[in-house]
Design a protein around this nucleic acid. Structure first.
Lengths: 191, 191
DNA sequence: GCATTTGCCTACGCGCCGTAGGTAGACGAC
DNA sequence: GTCGTCTACCTACGGCGCGTAGGCAAATGC
């Protein structure tokens, strides 16, 4: 029998494709083995099990989104940067629903440490830089932006906007307008 | 053997407790049967299977949150209503993480129709009424509010704010300030 | 008190998980 | 080149959750 040339990297990429086709729950050692024309127990030589596999997909997805967001916002500031950042997240989730779902898994601490999570925070901060908010206000703004983009993406992916009237895209533009306006006039807390 | 007095209602409540203790994936016919001191196949007399069980928990959770939010915002308007609405969601998710998670399941169309989903939309609309936005701007604002609250809740539950410096509560207050300010000065789109 | 309905049971087959232990391909030593 | 050694992949197995089939006994109707 020839060797299949497996390793954790190949398994992770294949598992990510599986997730995009069949959802996060579709990440299964058995399904992965079928896809790679290998028997399931062989996979345990490369990953410790189902849990690790999913975490690896999550880490991959976080890195890929960070890459895309980074490219999307490069050279932009203000409203255009907000739009580009949100759009990058939305587009990635639409193109790779399974990976996006993996993104919402709670990561083990040691995994989280090597993930692109902090990069996402830095990207949001970079986008907000043009609004020149002083700390701790910038952190509050980063959190608002993060929550809104994430919530929007999840709702859109779940079809929450598909059945009601105004187009999701139209609403998105107004939301970006709103956030831009808000960050522009963001003030320190009332005493 | 005495009868256990099971029905779909009892099963759903028990499954919801199970979810809060062990996560959404902890909703298992086998675990539910153990908890009810019954054998697993007996449960199929009351629910069609695992999928229906989870959907029932989701419907229950949606109804419970809508109840809480409704009580929380009663008699309030403006910033206080925004704060109360968000807090009701956050508190519910913190107290019932499994049920909250169930809330994010995509529901079958017929299940969605009998769920409290529309009630949530009406509550958001009611909270925004005091800002007197004309359509379609109110719808955009409802979506922004929904996305932000949902994203915030998920991030907080996932521990996203626990490891970094400013308190989640402090940020939340500033976010509510921001949303209040935004909705107050919300304008029609530039031509 | 008997028939029917209904609730819970045992028995079973399937699929996925993860472990144990075996075998054969790749690879360096000489 | 042949001989270990390592490593990649294998078969075999036990465990558990799902869901179906079919049986018996408790509740219910007449």
């Amino acid at each position: 029998m020839p060797r299949a040339g497996l390793n954790a990297e190949v398994l992770t990429r294949s598992a990510a494709e599986l997730a995009d086709e069949a959802g996060l729950a579709g990440i299964t050692l058995a399904a992965l083995a079928r896809r790679l024309h290998v028997k399931a127990p062989s996979l345990y030589a490369h990953v410790s099990g189902n849990r690790e596999l999913k975490q690896r997909v999550a880490v991959l997805a976080l890195a890929e989104t960070a890459d895309r967001v980074g490219e999307a916002v490069a050279g932009l500031s203000g409203r255009a940067a907000l739009d580009a950042l949100g759009r990058a997240y939305r587009d990635y989730a639409a193109a790779h629903p399974g990976r996006h779902q993996a993104t919402t898994l709670p990561l083990d601490d040691d995994v989280a440490r090597v993930s692109a999570g902090p990069r996402h925070a830095r990207l949001a901060r970079a986008v907000l830089r043009s609004y020149a908010l002083a700390e701790p206000e910038e952190t509050h703004a980063v959190r608002l932006l993060g929550a809104t983009v994430r919530g929007w993406t999840d709702l859109e992916l779940a079809g929450g906007f598909a059945r009601s009237k105004p187009d999701a895209e139209e609403s998105w533009q107004r939301v970006v307008d709103g956030l831009d306006q808000l960050f522009t006039s963001w003030t320190a807390p009332a005493p």
